[in-house]
Simulated scan of single mutants.
Amino acid sequence: MSNFQHPFNDSLKKILDRLEHLIKQSEFKNKQDPNYVLLDNSDILKLFNISPKTASNWREEQILPYSQIKGKIYYKLGDIHKVIDEHYNPNKKK
Rank of each mutant, 00 (worst) to 15 (best):
L22E: 01
K29N: 06
E61Y: 11
L45G: 01
K76H: 14
L39T: 01
D33F: 08
L64I: 04
T54R: 13
L39C: 03
L64S: 03
Y36L: 06
K46H: 13
Y36E: 10
N57W: 06
V37T: 09
I73V: 14
L38R: 11
D43W: 03
Q25T: 04
L45M: 13
Q62C: 12
I50D: 02
L47S: 07
N49E: 12
I69V: 15
N57S: 13
R59Y: 05
H21P: 00
I63N: 07
F48L: 15
I44W: 04
K24V: 05
S42K: 10
Q68C: 13
Q62T: 10
E27V: 07
F28P: 00
S56I: 00
Y75F: 15
N41F: 02
E27W: 00
S56D: 09
S51D: 01
Q32W: 02
L45E: 13
Q32N: 12
W58F: 13
Y66R: 06
R59I: 10
P65V: 04
S51G: 03
P34F: 11
L22R: 12
K53Q: 13
I23P: 00
N35T: 04
P34T: 02
S26N: 14
I50Y: 07
Y74L: 15
K70I: 09
D43N: 15
Y75C: 05
Q68G: 11
Q62K: 15
Q25L: 13
K46M: 10
Y74H: 12
Q32Y: 10
R59A: 09
I50E: 01
I69S: 14
S51A: 07
K24Q: 12
D43A: 08
H21G: 10
I63S: 04
L45Q: 11
L64T: 06
D43H: 13
L39R: 01
K24D: 09
T54A: 11
E60K: 15
P65A: 08
S51L: 11
N35F: 04
D33W: 01
K46I: 06
N35L: 02
H21E: 05
S42H: 10
L39N: 03
L64N: 04
E61P: 00
K46W: 12
E60I: 14
A55M: 07
K70F: 15
K53G: 06
L47Y: 11
Y66H: 15
K70S: 13
N49D: 15
S26F: 01
A55S: 15
S56T: 09
Q25F: 00
Y74V: 05
Q62N: 12
Q62H: 12
N35W: 01
I73W: 04
N49Y: 11
K72N: 08
Y36P: 00
V37M: 05
V37D: 02
Y66T: 01
N30T: 08
P34C: 10
N57P: 00
Y74W: 14
Q68P: 03
Q32S: 08
Q68K: 15
N49T: 07
S51I: 03
N30E: 09
G71Q: 09
N41H: 03
L22N: 01
A55G: 07
Q62Y: 11
L39G: 02
K70M: 05
P34Q: 04
D40G: 09
D40M: 05
Q32K: 11
K24P: 00
Q32H: 08
S56Y: 07
N49R: 04
D33R: 04
K24W: 01
